[in-house]
Design a protein around this nucleic acid. Structure first.
Length: 127
DNA sequence: GTTCTTACA
DNA sequence: TGTAAGAA
């Protein structure tokens, strides 16, 4: 499929898709005229890229993760897959830490909101 | 009509 | 990342 199709199917702009390719996150095949061609597997791949990007990972890291993912899928029991597996596992831990920090931040905000709510309850005219 | 590259806001 | 410009 062409870039317009992939864009429509993933909701990701053509601009971003070209950018992902430049960052080494996506590989494409070119038609004689120079047009990019994507295959079905690129749809879920773009979805993964979006998820990692949303998780705050820099494109450089994502490129490495995606490769590791490919390696593990190709030969789950190969030697090379072990290193990739560890890298992926490490990244999972990092993301878990970030989530924990976000949850903590949310708790803090909840408390501030609770205090503010209590204040307004005491002084209805304050607002 | 769709996509490509390059460049600018 | 959006958008514009000019070529393919």
């Amino acid at each position: 499929m062409r870039i317009g199709d992939l864009s429509a199917r993933t909701g990701v702009s053509q601009r971003s898709l070209r950018y992902y390719e430049n960052q080494g996150l996506l590989s494409t095949t070119r038609s004689p005229g120079g047009q990019r061609h994507y295959d079905e597997a690129d749809v879920p791949r773009v979805q993964e890229i979006r998820a990692f990007l949303a998780a705050g990972l820099p494109t450089r890291v994502i490129a490495g993760l995606l490769n590791g993912l490919a390696v593990c899928r190709a030969a789950p029991d190969a030697d090379e897959a072990l290193h990739s597996w560890e890298t992926l596992s490490r990244e999972r831990s990092r993301i878990t830490s970030v989530i924990d920090e976000l949850v903590t931040a949310r708790h803090a905000l909840d408390e501030l909101l609770a205090v503010n709510h209590a204040f307004l309850k005491e002084h209805p005219t304050a607002r």
